[in-house]
């Protein structure tokens, strides 16, 4: 055995882990940039406005139902 295999193994490790980390770190930055760009220029239509009046409606409906039950029991 002429080549030092252990040394070769460590070389592989350095290159391999280095590439994996460089790739993932670049990916993290790109992901963060992408999130900002998309949030700024292409925001998703907010669904929150639609739920707010629905809550109010529920309350009036519940009030009506309880009133009806009360009326029914008393009557």
């Amino acid at each position: 055995m002429e080549t030092n295999l252990i040394l070769e193994g460590f070389k592989f490790m350095g290159l391999g882990m280095g590439t994996v980390f460089v790739f993932l770190i670049v990916m993290i930055f790109v992901m963060q940039a992408m999130a900002k760009v998309i949030d700024r220029f292409f925001p998703e239509p907010q669904a929150a406005d639609a739920t707010a009046p629905a809550k109010k409606d529920n309350k009036t409906i519940i009030a009506a139902i309880t009133a009806a039950i009360k009326h029914h029991r008393e009557g």
Partner: peptide, 30 residues
């Protein structure tokens, strides 16, 4: 992953299993 990009580093670190074993196999061969 998109909502917490940092965690990608954990997926990178775990690849140490691959290259650590490569060194281990080379030690056995040597």
């Amino acid at each position: 992953l998109l909502s917490n990009p940092k965690t990608a580093l954990l997926g990178g670190a775990a690849q140490f299993g691959i290259f650590g074993t490569l060194v281990g196999a080379m030690v056995l061969a040597q």
